[in-house]
Design a protein around this nucleic acid. Structure first.
Lengths: 357, 357
DNA sequence: CAAACCCATGCAAACGGTTGCACGACGGGT
DNA sequence: ACCCGTCGTGCAACCGTTTGCATGGGTTTG
């Protein structure tokens, strides 16, 4: 009924194996036969059956992408870039979300393995290292992105959390701000810790004392952002700038600032971690630390593909595994937009007077 | 090496076929053997090989999801809901984007077929009906969402574009607005036409003359939104309200309104089509027509699953195909928020005077 | 009591490629 | 002229399940 490799082989007057090799680009085939087979295949509109191919060759051309959720803006760019790059390399993406639940993640990974995925990219979760390590031993490629687990053998691609946070704070400080608020992620998250220390370091560098009443750290949720912003504004700490280092909380922070009628940047300068479409469109456009989502995605795909290639050529050797375990940092960059300015109100009034007196 | 069905069968002292039937829940198996086999499988940690299963049974438990892109907010909810529902039914999602390019879409669909997907959900594109019709004949399930093609045999799930637009306009009109701007989608898109006629009808119903200078229609892009908003504001047509019926253009419209310092809703009331996180967070929160993305997604999955079930039980009959072709509308709903109010400025000044004089 | 039947099970043939191995032809070296 | 190596091709086994058909024991029916 449907056209299989056998049909192609018959039409090209070659054996099944020759047809297979010709189409898969084996170097053992003469140019002549290859041409004949190719012609036959395209005449017949032959399409290979991936299931059959996967069954025999253990290569499915499927890659699993594991995400916490799809609703969070910050994953879109990454997912989009990954998907594009993989498709152009002949892979398709099986996408699934875990809601950050370890059990869901675990069972999802197993299901992906059932489907024989050639590799898995795990974004924003460092759980189930045991399972992914097992995958590595079974010849599947694995890459962790954004969040890592210390005992994962797979390579990890991280954003430059500390440096980015340093730069953000530095930017505010050199504009003249000294009361810089900080809303960040929980301490138990590596990224939360790293960003916080970037903030501290930059303050220290500028001789600004660290003031706990300006700092709030919590979960990566919109609700926490709203709470934290409300709290900080209520405290009246003389805050003239705010560094929103918790990407998810931003969605809670912005509305609260608007509701309180904060004039940005006149009353309050604002820097966010991680660039998102929303922040470009905001009015005023928000100054951000671009954490290089595109690069993160591209590096992840590169690492995955090179793993796959290594597995094909070398097989699963302990040596290969040892080489794997490594952490990559993607540089971040300040994108100055309209939401940051010198702490005008206090200065505009006081400096001229000072100058006169 | 790895544990296969054969291993399980041996441990349970049954044949391969019995083991297979026991695990797949065939009614031909006695309770006793089923229990033994189940036990053996779980003892061994048996995981079925999907590739093998797909090869033999033609059912991959894979569903293709075809999107224009991942960057557009409006697809996230739908994609998320679809992904969840399908996973809970034992399916995995192969996600891919087409950038609205027919050739990409075509080749993508073929690739999905190569992978033996059991069905495809196509969001926001009505191209390649020929290919999807072919899929239907080959026993694959297909559902179109949001955008349809007249000659597609597959069922289509649409939002209530006309009614939603009617309701939006009606809302503004009954607040007292008579100069209601409209930024919509191109005429060649069904949804563009439907929304526009909803707008017209509501105006007519309220005895408001249709004024072309208040109406701009164009592609579903952010850029068009920015252009259109700038243009409308420049025209000074006495517009007191704006209905943004082009979901993608919204991202261009909002920043322009902010840049022009429009006070919403004092100077201009605003209603958008399609609810998005951004619009809830905006300040003021934007009144929207919720087009029921969640319901759209759920209905799509239901239609897909019922197709799959029908194919399994009936096979591919012309009768089945005939039953398929049908369009479903998901109701939309006005969500009144802070961006709409009576046309205060003009009225506050003029009506009292009128009353007095 | 035999015939007809049903149920649970096993056998073996698919499904559609891939791949290790064997084979034959051909060219070059001695 | 003979041997050997290389290259292109074919044969057949194999990947792990599913499933049509045959089998055999037990039950129902005439």
């Amino acid at each position: 009924m449907s056209v299989t490799l056998r049909t192609v082989a018959e039409r090209a007057n070659v054996s099944l194996s020759t047809a297979s090799r010709a189409l898969s680009g084996s170097p053992l085939i003469s140019e002549g036969t290859r041409a004949v087979v190719d012609q036959a295949a395209s005449d017949l509109g032959y399409r290979p059956n991936r299931a059959a191919s996967a069954l025999r060759s253990k290569r499915s051309h499927l890659i699993g992408l594991v995400l916490n959720n799809l609703v969070n803006q910050s994953f879109h760019t990454i997912a989009d870039v990954i998907q594009r790059r993989l498709r152009s390399e002949g892979y398709q993406l099986i996408l699934s979300t875990t809601d950050a639940d370890p059990r869901t993640e675990e069972s999802l990974l197993l299901t992906l393995a059932d489907h024989g995925v050639d590799g898995v990219i795990i974004i924003g979760s460092g759980q189930s290292a045991a399972t992914t390590n097992d995958f590595l031993h079974r010849g599947m490629a694995v890459v962790n992105v954004i969040r890592s687990s210390h005992d994962s053998l797979a390579p990890t691609v991280l954003a430059a959390d500390r440096d980015g946070a340093y730069e953000a704070t530095e930017h505010l400080a050199s504009l003249g701000h000294r009361r810089i608020g900080y809303i960040g992620g929980i301490e138990s998250a590596d990224s939360g810790r790293a960003r916080h220390s970037g903030y501290e370091d930059a303050l220290a560098r500028h001789g600004i004392p660290y003031d706990e009443s300006l700092v709030l750290r919590g979960p990566f949720t919109q609700d926490f952002g709203a709470l934290a912003a409300t709290e900080l504004l209520a405290r009246s700490t003389g805050m003239t700038a705010l560094f929103a280092a918790n990407h998810e909380a931003v969605f809670g922070i912005l509305p609260v600032l608007m509701q309180h009628g904060m004039r940005i940047p006149d009353q309050l300068s604002l820097v966010c971690f991680e660039d998102m479409p929303l922040l470009q469109m905001w009015h005023p456009a928000v100054t951000v630390i671009d954490n290089g989502a595109t690069q993160l995605a591209e590096l992840s795909v590169d690492l995955l593909l090179s793993q796959i290639r290594a597995i094909v050529s070398e097989g699963v050797t302990p040596e290969r595994l040892r080489r794997l375990t490594r952490t990559y940092r993607v540089g971040s960059q300040l994108v100055a937009r309209a939401s940051t300015a010198p702490p005008a109100p206090a200065f505009a009034v006081s400096s001229p007077r000072k100058a006169r007196s």
